[in-house]
Design a protein around this nucleic acid. Structure first.
Length: 269
DNA sequence: AATCGTCCCAACCGCAACCGG
DNA sequence: ACCGGTTGCGGTTGGGACGAT
């Protein structure tokens, strides 16, 4: 239990004096024991507040200011793979805090990736997680048709990877094998070879899932999502403009690269 | 100049995980 | 195994800044 501060702990924005006191205290005594910091330092703040202030603002090597394009790209990629795992994402952005990444996503990136094309929902990592699960568990959906032949997903034959119609993330089978978060991060960071056995259709499946259109809810699609895929000519044809300027081209067309050797390309760098 | 609305970010809250006794 | 204290995480909110009217 946090040690009681006489009266209510002070709240609201931190003043420069308070920052100074906390900084001096932590530099002298080290991090931890936040519950006692307020008492011993003379700050009238709760332990949580002190910890947060240190972690998000006073700690050395905190980088402030605008996100670079590289950082933004990385956040988008990581979020596609990990979802709202802000601390994990922030861990890969030196000097950035989870709070900052979260705020940046909510105020800048979420809009970019969710407002184009009306029915687009927020990106949900459970869908990307499901992709890996699905790919492990059921290769027939897209990679192969019933005859064992590779089939090309088209508007006519493309099926959502989930046979029933789960509407919520809780409906998704979470018991299946999934790539662990660390591996996913390494892939995004280009620190490791792409997922073994990743095929053109796998990443396509994965990419489509990332966009998380409403096809779970009603695959008839009020918003037309007639995606035609022509692997033979290495091109994707949408009946509308590519989904978003920043994310979709990034995921889709990075994946193909510039060559025609689609089959071995992964969308991971 | 005053008011209103919107945006953005720092800070708070609740919960879960972790840890030591 | 249980319990109490601490820490970490992600969602939410309060309020300052700023532009529009």
């Amino acid at each position: 239990m946090e040690q009681k501060i006489k009266g209510e702990p002070k709240r609201g924005l931190w003043k420069a004096e308070e920052d100074m006191i906390l900084k001096n205290y932590v530099e002298t005594h080290g991090e931890g024991n936040w519950a006692t910091v307020s008492k011993r330092s003379g700050l009238k703040r709760g332990g949580k507040s002190c910890r947060l202030r240190w972690k998000n603002y006073l700690r050395p090597n905190i980088k402030r200011g605008e996100m670079s394009k590289e950082e933004e790209d990385l956040i988008i990629r990581m979020h596609n793979l990990l979802g709202n795992r802000w601390s994990l994402i922030a861990g890969r952005l030196p000097g950035r805090t989870d709070n900052e990444v979260k705020n940046y996503w909510n105020t800048h990136l979420n809009k970019k990736t969710c407002t184009v094309l009306g029915k687009r929902k927020s990106i949900d990592h459970s869908t990307t997680q499901h992709i890996a699960n699905h790919h492990n568990n059921n290769n027939n959906t897209i990679d192969q048709n019933q005859d064992g032949n590779r089939s090309t997903p088209t508007a006519e034959n493309f099926e959502p990877p989930i046979s029933s119609s789960p509407k919520t993330t809780t409906d998704i089978d979470e018991g299946s094998v999934d790539l662990d978060d660390e591996k996913k991060m390494k892939q995004v960071m280009g620190e490791e070879d792409p997922i073994d056995g990743f095929t053109d259709n796998t990443w396509m499946e994965r990419t489509v899932q990332c966009f998380n259109y409403d096809y779970y809810d009603d695959f008839e699609l009020e918003t037309p999502f007639m995606m035609m895929m022509d692997l033979a000519s290495s091109s994707l044809v949408f009946d509308e403009e590519p989904f978003t300027p920043c994310l979709d081209s990034f995921l889709l067309f990075d994946a193909f690269g510039t060559g025609s050797d689609v089959g071995t390309q992964s969308f991971l760098p």
